[in-house]
Design a binder for these strands. Structure first.
Length: 278
DNA sequence: CTCAGTGTTCAGTG
DNA sequence: TCACTGAACACTGA
């Protein structure tokens, strides 16, 4: 459940179960997603019996704020989600055609239960996710190294321009850089550049003030809108590129009938509309 | 059998 | 130092 809006939805799901509750039982799989010399039992020990005051998020990272240290942190990688029973996942994992409503769901890596009997699971089909422990995760790497979070700490236009001034690279690469804007991933980067009317191959240093303003406005706009609808893509505006970018069809077109091009930039498939992006 | 994918990191090059 | 590329990680279905 990769980008900022999907992770924010995961934060809300976890908070709905955990906030103010005590974790009475937890099972963590011994799996490569548990890293940095941490064993599954270490994560279990950190969580079992602890009371959760809040679920934090910055960019694509989540953590549990407990009444003792260390705190567990979570990253979903290319796939993954926090799940609760009887609630359909936001994104289908493992190439599923229909929502997996079994419990525990396929690809579960962590399961826990609270003093109210509520359950939460973390899934991670492709196992590129990460679980760590930290004494103050928001300030330690990797979370401490992140740039601004566009949902909760979107800079003013003046500050945004100042930060752009420190960057070289092409637009798409800068948008994907987590030390610039935390939580922007492949589809958000493309959506923002599409709405801002900017060619993803352009150099950041070549933007004029109006183009900088468009980038600022649409970054804020796309993230806020996606979060406002709980990252449910069926409720994204019909005009968004998002609805037409998947599958890499040679004849893919926007809602206005403009052809969509697919190129690789910064190592990622980039969907853009030459008729609209300069 | 091959390939790509809503992500990150690391080694190597310029 | 910085920008950039390609590979690696890991899994699944088209």
């Amino acid at each position: 459940m990769p980008e900022l809006p999907e992770v924010e939805y995961g934060r809300k799901v976890a908070a709905s179960v955990l906030q103010g509750r005590r974790i009475v039982d937890v099972h963590v799989d011994e799996d490569p997603i548990v890293v940095d010399g941490v064993a599954a039992v270490d994560v279990e020990r950190a969580m079992r019996g602890a009371k959760v005051s809040a679920v934090g998020r910055r960019g694509k990272h989540l953590w549990l704020e407990l009444d003792r240290r260390p705190w567990p942190t979570f990253h979903f990688g290319m796939t993954g989600a926090f799940r609760v029973p009887a609630e359909a996942p936001l994104i289908l994992e493992g190439g599923a055609k229909t929502p997996d409503m079994t419990w525990p769901p396929r690809f579960t890596k962590i399961r826990l239960r609270t003093d109210r009997g509520a359950e939460l699971a973390m899934t991670n089909a492709r196992r590129l996710g990460r679980i760590r422990l930290g004494d103050d995760p928001a300030r330690e790497p990797p979370i401490g190294d992140l740039g601004f979070d566009p949902l909760v700490e979107m800079p003013t236009l003046a500050e945004f321009r100042r930060r752009l001034g420190h960057r070289r690279g092409v637009l798409k690469a800068v948008m994907l850089d987590q030390t610039f804007a935390a939580g922007v991933g492949n589809w958000i980067a493309d959506e923002v550049l599409y709405q801002a009317g900017l060619d993803p191959r352009r150099r950041i240093a070549d933007l004029d003030p109006q183009e900088q303003r468009a980038l600022h406005r649409h970054l804020k706009g796309v993230v806020n809108k996606a979060v406002a609808v709980d990252a449910d893509s069926r409720r994204f505006p019909k005009t968004w590129l998002f609805h037409h970018r998947w599958g890499k069809n040679a004849d893919a077109r926007t809602s206005e009938g403009m052809p969509i091009e697919f190129v690789t930039i910064a190592g990622r498939t980039t969907a853009w509309v030459p008729d609209r992006q300069r």
